[in-house]
Design a protein around this nucleic acid. Structure first.
Lengths: 144, 144
DNA sequence: CGCTCTCCTCTAGTCGCTAGAGGATATGGG
DNA sequence: CCCATATCCTCTAGCGACTAGAGGAGAGCG
């Protein structure tokens, strides 16, 4: 029932910061919108939904280009779903790659930290491991 | 035994790209170094080791600031190791947080993709899920 | 000598914002 | 009705960690 809201309220409702909303407008993720007499932006419910969509997609790690694609799809709901599906799948693959890589890093860091003698830097395993790649537990670069 | 090398060779040996090496010099991660008569940079073995250290630390996800700290420690090996240890531990915690978060994202994306009807966008679960946060499998934001 | 390759410096662009200056408008109380 | 404060406006510049490209100088080889 609530009518159009100002940018501050929109920020509150969507969890996107005010300057970020303006930035999204600037790069045309959201349409140039209606202003009040005093030149203030007004956000309708549909705009708020669009912003929430963007926020949620960002939280899932989609980049703005992917989001732009998804929004275009959403604007034209008779298009086939396969494009959205593809974007999401690419994202999933990327996330899986990253989890894999981070897990390897975690292992290496743990070994480093556990080997730390807490003496002086001269026999610190952390520094030493970083300095000499050949000490790595396993080489996460040959794995990708 | 090999003497000083040019930047291209240094790039090859350390796996850091030529412009990146120059960038590291600009931001003073590596010292202003000796040049040849023809104004070309020359890298000694010690420089190459420093660059490898940086690369390895970057691969482990340390930011340049953290690396700067670690390098300072390395330059002065009588300092206690606890600082390096702390930096590494903070990094580990960060990685664990990220793995956790990415795992939640992965779950959500999977549900989205599996629910995709492959029909038109109008009944695409991917779009729908993004549009309505309340459809999330679990809310990874309240978990942090 | 000419050819090519590598090197040099410099500027500008990437992504996704964030911060701040400097000014206009809106709202509520006295 | 006036003033204080809050919110808004536009604009420019900055962040991190590079990357790309222009335009020119030097190095090495046949």
């Amino acid at each position: 029932m609530s009518g159009p809201v100002a940018i501050g309220q929109a920020a509150k409702e969507t969890g996107i910061k005010v300057p970020t909303i303006r930035f999204y407008e600037e790069i045309k993720l959201i349409q140039p919108l209606v202003r009040t007499d005093g030149n203030r932006r007004q956000y309708e419910q549909a705009d708020l939904r669009r912003l929430s969509f963007i926020r949620h997609a960002r939280e899932l790690g989609f980049d703005l280009d992917a989001i732009r694609n998804l929004l275009t799809l959403q604007d034209d709901p008779n298009q086939p779903c396969t494009v959205a599906d593809g974007i999401a799948k690419a994202r999933l693959a990327d996330i899986e790659r990253r989890i894999h890589s981070l897990t390897a890093l975690k292992k290496e860091l743990k070994v480093m930290i556990e080997g730390c003698s807490r003496g002086s830097v001269s026999d610190c395993r952390v520094i030493e491991t970083l300095a000499d790649h050949s000490l790595c537990v396993d080489d996460h670069n040959h794995g990708s």
